[in-house]
């Protein structure tokens, strides 16, 4: 059972949260290549959000190659495999990490502690499966 949960008070927009949760689902192997995702309509109905919101998340996922959207088969996790780590993506990760690392440094976190934190989160995601924990 794959449960997707969204924080409605979060500052990050719903479509970004939705995109990230689905990618996390794939990373934790709860969602596997070829697995179906709900239609835009059903997803929006269950989340109680506008269909545009879900559509936006799906378009982002499709652009990056995480999902495929078929007319008949519907939405599926890309069965042909995941996008690769290319230069573009690496540059992106670097850019995203900078402010996070900077703030951690300012707050007095040393390199080892930061790397340990990353390892913990990495393993947490890979383990996945904590369905009940929706925080």
């Amino acid at each position: 059972m794959v449960i997707i949960s969204l924080d409605l008070q979060s500052e990050s927009p719903i479509y970004i949260q939705l995109r990230n949760k689905i990618i996390e689902g794939i990373a934790s192997k709860q969602l596997r290549p070829g697995d179906p995702l709900p239609s835009v309509r059903t997803f929006a109905q269950d989340l109680g959000v506008n269909m545009h919101t879900v559509n936006k998340a799906y378009q982002l996922l499709k652009q990056d190659g995480f999902i495929q959207i078929h007319r008949q088969k519907g939405v599926v996790i890309n069965p042909d495999g995941m996008p690769s780590v290319d230069e573009n993506y690496l540059a992106n990760v670097r850019e995203n990490l900078r402010p996070v690392i900077s703030e951690s440094v300012c707050r007095g976190m040393n390199k080892e502690e930061f790397i340990k934190l990353i390892q913990e989160v990495y393993e947490e995601i890979q383990k996945g499966g904590e369905h009940d924990d929706l925080r």
């Binding site: 059972m1 794959v2 997707i4 969204l6 008070q9 709900p38 269950d46 989340l47 929706l134």
Partner: peptide, 12 residues
């Protein structure tokens, strides 16, 4: 409390 909406993808 934190306000959350949750959906089971395979519900239907």
């Amino acid at each position: 409390k934190k306000e959350v909406v949750a959906v089971d993808l395979s519900f239907y």
